Computed example of a mutant assay.
Amino acid sequence: MLDDLDRRLLRLLQEEPARPVPELAQAAGLTPGRAARRLDRLRETGVLKGQETVIDWRRLGYTVHVSLRVTLDKGAPRAFEDFLAAAREVPEVVEIQTFLGQVDVRLSLIARDLAHYRAIYRDRILTLPRISDIEALMTLSVVHDNQALPL
């Protein structure tokens, strides 16, 4: 589906997503019109889903990052639906993932400090419905964080 030029454009976009099309075209060895048409095709086929802004929450004072592994009471009707709907309402929850296996849901949340985290955990997380078990993993450091694809 992708040829070498498409992969080159995608690699360049991964390196610098805000690069203007004329600069992107020059770096890829294409004319701006040809690069724009290829980018349009990549968007139309769903390969490119758009651009996003990534905010460094640490610079905004959120120094604590915790991953919560949650097992739900699956015997309760609508356990997943009730839990997920309530978890979406916690502003500090920045990611929710569901799994097959012993752990049903992972919540990723941020807090300003440990006191703020304790308050979120006590007042918001522990009141979420249908929790059977919960395990907290606090991030000490991020060793590798690369979302670029090997194109």
Rank of each mutant, 00 (worst) to 15 (best):
residue 144 H to G: 09
residue 21 V to R: 03
residue 53 T to F: 15
residue 106 R to N: 13
residue 56 D to Q: 01
residue 26 Q to P: 02
residue 97 Q to A: 04
residue 132 S to Y: 03
residue 76 A to E: 10
residue 22 P to Y: 02
residue 148 A to D: 03
residue 74 K to D: 10
residue 106 R to D: 01
residue 71 T to G: 06
residue 9 L to N: 06
residue 82 D to W: 00
residue 16 E to R: 15
residue 114 L to P: 02
residue 56 D to T: 08
residue 1 M to Y: 12
residue 20 P to S: 09
residue 20 P to V: 08
residue 36 A to M: 04
residue 8 R to S: 07
residue 143 V to Q: 13
residue 78 R to A: 08
residue 4 D to N: 11
residue 92 E to T: 08
residue 104 D to V: 15
residue 110 I to P: 06
residue 143 V to Y: 13
residue 134 I to W: 08
residue 35 A to W: 11
residue 87 A to C: 05
residue 14 Q to D: 04
residue 70 V to T: 05
residue 67 S to M: 12
residue 67 S to H: 15
residue 18 A to Q: 03
residue 65 H to G: 07
residue 108 S to Y: 08
residue 54 V to Q: 10
residue 68 L to P: 01
residue 112 R to K: 09
residue 55 I to R: 02
residue 10 L to S: 06
residue 84 L to W: 03
residue 82 D to T: 05
residue 11 R to C: 14
residue 71 T to E: 10
residue 17 P to A: 04
residue 146 N to W: 10
residue 83 F to T: 06
residue 77 P to D: 09
residue 113 D to V: 14
residue 119 A to L: 07
residue 95 E to G: 00
residue 134 I to N: 03
residue 21 V to I: 15
residue 16 E to M: 15
residue 19 R to P: 08
residue 21 V to C: 13
residue 105 V to L: 00
residue 127 T to L: 10
residue 11 R to P: 01
residue 11 R to S: 08
residue 12 L to P: 14
residue 91 P to Q: 04
residue 100 L to W: 05
residue 57 W to D: 09
residue 14 Q to L: 06
residue 27 A to P: 00
residue 22 P to I: 05
residue 97 Q to D: 09
